[in-house]
Design a binder for these strands. Structure first.
Lengths: 209, 209
DNA sequence: CCTACCGATCGGTAGG
DNA sequence: CCTACCGATCGGTAGG
């Protein structure tokens, strides 16, 4: 069997290449590329071949790191929610305890908009891909979303509790309005043409009444 | 040539069926089905086979009425914008000339939300499919969008012009916030669980300050 | 409006 | 991590 040595060498080379590539890093590179593509192209238009090309490997090699396209999408989506969650809770945590309700709201809006518009492909990718993803992926993402929504329910609850007047708006609607105006911003926002700080202050002014 | 008569008969039957089907109606049926599917599944997931099946014809027969998938999508998207435009301008037109700014705003929001959430698959389909559609389709839709946005610029302009105070919000941001909270509503709205009238009043209360 | 079909592309797999 | 490949599906076309 003259061919055996050659065959074995090929398999060895493959295993070697795989080991040399320090897996966790490749995994992250794939997720980064997927997030960027999902953000701009959406779930259906983003192919495994696109992702592979973006990280300089072949399409089939994706399966060395992940078991399916949806495993990648799920990871991006869950990460995306967790990133805004971390950004917003961190921003609130860093505020002095003497800070006003308005300051808390502005800080939260700034953190959310920054993640969505500038810092995290993951967050905007998740927002864009959610409805096109299969049920199993969505179900997993929903858990992360609920935790994040609770932060806003808390924040908005503080606001509505301290207000009164003829024009009462339910906390639920106020939270949905807040998330609506923020999450719709990728539709019109263009980098450089608007200041996120100014936007956050204006959004807060609209919500605080 | 014994087969000639049979062949000719098949062609005749086809032409006959086409003529019997009173084209304009079939065209509208196809667009209705496409709008409904595009609304729920989006641009990529909606196939010509889906649309054909929904109206009870074969996939290839779509091309008897349209030249391409994108021609259908463009028609749905443009119609969708025109429908909200008509709904909102009609609602404003029917208001008595003595109506207040708040009444005008509530009427416009009600009309927009009704079209988006209840009356028009076309409008929500356009909103959902816009970013996945090819450039040529988007370019056409943009013209319709601009005309509709002008209605809101006018309405919001009236509001900001009559207000003053330390918390001034630019008309642009206020318009974007208004359209944002409205256009995000398909994300959480479920028929029957919310009253569009109540929502419209709450949204108006948030925007009027 | 139907039948039959084409080229392109996609997610995924086998074997090394 | 690569090569080579598969079955499924898609938009679109030819001919009647």
């Amino acid at each position: 069997m003259a061919t055996r040595p050659a065959e074995k060498s090929a398999a060895q080379k493959a295993r070697l290449a795989a080991q040399q590539s320090s897996e966790p890093q490749s995994r992250r590179e794939i997720l980064d590329a997927a997030a960027r593509l999902l953000r701009t192209q959406g779930y259906r238009a983003t192919t495994l071949r696109d992702i592979a090309e973006a990280v300089g490997i072949k399409a089939g090699s994706i399966y060395y790191h992940f078991n399916s396209k949806d495993e990648i999408v799920a990871a991006v989506m869950n990460d995306g929610v967790d990133r805004v969650y971390e950004a917003v809770t961190a921003a609130l945590r860093e505020l002095p305890s003497t800070s006003s309700q308005r300051e808390r709201l502005v800080a939260a809006i700034t953190a959310h908009l920054s993640a969505l518009l500038e810092h995290s492909d993951y967050t905007s990718a998740g927002l864009k891909s959610y409805h096109d993803a299969p049920d199993t992926v969505r179900a997993a993402a929903r858990q992360h979303r609920r935790r994040y929504e609770a932060v806003w329910s808390q924040l908005i609850g503080e606001i509505t509790a301290s207000r009164s007047g003829p024009d009462k708006v339910s906390p639920e609607t106020l939270r949905r309005a807040a998330l609506g105006m923020m999450n719709w911003s990728p539709e019109w926002y263009r980098t450089g043409r608007y200041s996120i700080n100014t936007l956050a202050n204006e959004f807060a002014a609209i919500l605080l009444r």
